[in-house]
Amino acid sequence: MKVGIMGGTFDPIHIGHLIAAQCAYEQAELGEVWFLPTNIPPHKPHAPIASPEQRWDMICRAVRHQPHFRPFDMELRKGGVSFTFDTVHDLREHHPSIHFCYIIGADMVEYLPKWYKIEELVHLISFVGLQRPGYVLDLEQLPEAIRAAVTLAPMPLIELSSTNIRQRKSEGRSIRHMVPDDVHAYIEVNGLYGS
Rank of each mutant, 00 (worst) to 15 (best):
D90A: 14
I104L: 15
V88P: 06
K117E: 13
Y102F: 15
S82W: 12
S97Y: 09
I103A: 09
L139T: 02
F100S: 07
M108Q: 15
F85C: 12
V128Y: 00
E144Q: 13
A153R: 01
R147G: 04
D86E: 15
H123Q: 13
D107I: 11
G129L: 03
E144I: 06
D138Y: 06
S126R: 12
Y111N: 13
H94E: 14
W115C: 10
P143E: 09
Q131L: 13
I125P: 11
F100V: 08
E140M: 07
Q141H: 06
G134E: 02
E110W: 03
P96L: 09
L137Y: 02
I103C: 11
P143L: 00
Q131F: 00
P154S: 03
R132A: 03
I125E: 07
L142W: 07
P133R: 02
S97D: 14
H123A: 08
W115H: 10
I125L: 12
F100G: 08
A148P: 00
P133T: 00
V150E: 03
Y135M: 05
D138I: 00
T87I: 07
I104S: 04
P96V: 13
D90G: 00
R147F: 01
V88W: 03
R147K: 15
Y135V: 07
E119Q: 14
Y135K: 03
S82Y: 12
L139H: 05
L152A: 00
H94Q: 15
V122I: 11
P113D: 09
I146W: 01
R147H: 06
F100E: 10
V88Y: 06
C101I: 08
T87W: 08
Q141L: 12
P133G: 06
F85Q: 10
G129T: 01
V128L: 04
P143N: 10
A153I: 10
I118A: 01
Q141K: 14
P143D: 13
D107A: 07
P133C: 00
A148S: 12
P143F: 00
E144P: 12
H123G: 11
L142A: 05
R147Q: 12
Q131H: 00
V150Q: 01
L112C: 06
Y116M: 12
R132T: 00
Y135R: 03
K114E: 14
I118M: 03
R147M: 02
G134A: 03
Q131A: 04
S82N: 08
R92W: 02
F100A: 11
Y111E: 14
L152K: 04
V150I: 13
Y116K: 15
L130M: 09
A106E: 02
L124H: 11
P143V: 05
Q141Y: 00
D107F: 09
Y102M: 15
D86I: 06
R92Y: 01
E120K: 14
Y102R: 08
G105F: 13
V136H: 12
F83E: 02
E144L: 12
G134L: 04
I118C: 01
Q131C: 09
G129V: 05
I125K: 08
